[in-house]
Design a protein around this nucleic acid. Sequence first.
DNA 1: GACCGACCATTCGTATACGATCCGAGAGAT
DNA 2: ATCTCTCGGATCGTATACGAATGGTCGGTC
Lengths: 233, 233
Amino acid sequence: MTGGLAGQPTAEQPTTAASKSERAYAWLVERIARREYAPGYRLVLATIAAELDMSVVPVREAIRRLEAEGLVTFERNVGAHVAMIDDSQYRQSMETLAVLEGAATALAARRLTPADLRRAREVNRRLVESLDDFDPHTFTALNQEFHAVLFAPCPNPRLLELVSAEWARLGRLRDSTFAFVPGRAQESVREHEGIVGLIEAGAPLADIEEAAREHRSATLTAYLHHEHPGEQR
Amino acid sequence: MTGGLAGQPTAEQPTTAASKSERAYAWLVERIARREYAPGYRLVLATIAAELDMSVVPVREAIRRLEAEGLVTFERNVGAHVAMIDDSQYRQSMETLAVLEGAATALAARRLTPADLRRAREVNRRLVESLDDFDPHTFTALNQEFHAVLFAPCPNPRLLELVSAEWARLGRLRDSTFAFVPGRAQESVREHEGIVGLIEAGAPLADIEEAAREHRSATLTAYLHHEHPGEQR
DNA sequence: GACCGACCATTCGTATACGATCCGAGAGAT
DNA sequence: ATCTCTCGGATCGTATACGAATGGTCGGTC
């Protein structure tokens, strides 16, 4: 391993700072995020190990971690696949996110400084601009940034952890809703302004929470209507 | 490796249905749950492997899984310890649970049958009875059962997953709040009745959600007041 | 006597090895 | 020709082996 070749013995390269399993994890997340490994892709331990120049053991660990986080599915004696999210799961996760983000936004509201609000508006302005030549990916990225600014000062890190874990599951596995229902984007940025306004005005936290939640739910509803026009729910 | 001892060759015992890593996982959860391995306990791979009569590899996998779920902490090249939850984390998790459970209860409300409500009341009646000779553990178990009945029909399994994951983190790692603030128990059962009443009466979902959330938050507040009477928050 | 540095035991991290399991392809029978 | 059974390749699951990092202890020095 690394054969005892006489490298710079004194050079304390902290390159090895991360363990191999961590590198494998990061590498896989990267690939999944950029859809090089698309949902459904078969992950073969030995292949990945070879590509990363390590044994299967760390790769295995990385994959199990991804499984725990819901990014890959794993079947005994069969192997791992990049997770696929069906409509039902998508709906559930979005609904959950609506709840979590709504709460986080409300908890953060009183801690947002004027500077934060300015920054939020700035991001939203860029969202408006991006409407011109619409690209779902760009829009989604900015959209997430907008909301991140709003709930960043939330005093409950645990809540934020759950939010970002859920986004990781979703954002990386499925194209943004806006790719399916571009029309939703316009409404969305309008609602953003409304939320910032509520916060600025010191509105009751319950109102802020509801607005944030509804905002997210509306995106989901738009998607469902678009995909399954018949259904009620 | 089960040393080739001549077991019943034809007996297709599906005992081996679960992989070793799964067995190790279940075993560890069990030990942690029953506080045989208390918070802070050092988990040594080789020791556990020996006790379970397997190699360290599956044990390692089980521990990493527990880490992902937040039940153990893991430090590189040092090892794993059963997670300890400090006041701050406890507060955050309870707050998060208040949000999640509130939402789950509201989503489930319209789907609860009269039979469900009867069952909830029955559990609450047992809670009242248990107040006589108060045992925090029994009380907490019944308490969780009560709430589980209420949000079981929640149509969003993902939300329920997060709820139970969070309870696993907490319930297994720290004694119930009621051990610290027994007085809270009385209020708690009264509030239960209020929540069931709201659901039965078909109250607005927002009201139900708020009641459920407040109910959980109140427990937290009681604890904080008891432990840190000075602080305002 | 107290502080500092080197040694050793313990335990983790990863590689390699091998048996177990699954899936598909090809031979054989109907 | 089609269906079935068997065999073989591919891949996973776990054991064992060994280098590497950590933490504590012992001995040396000021």
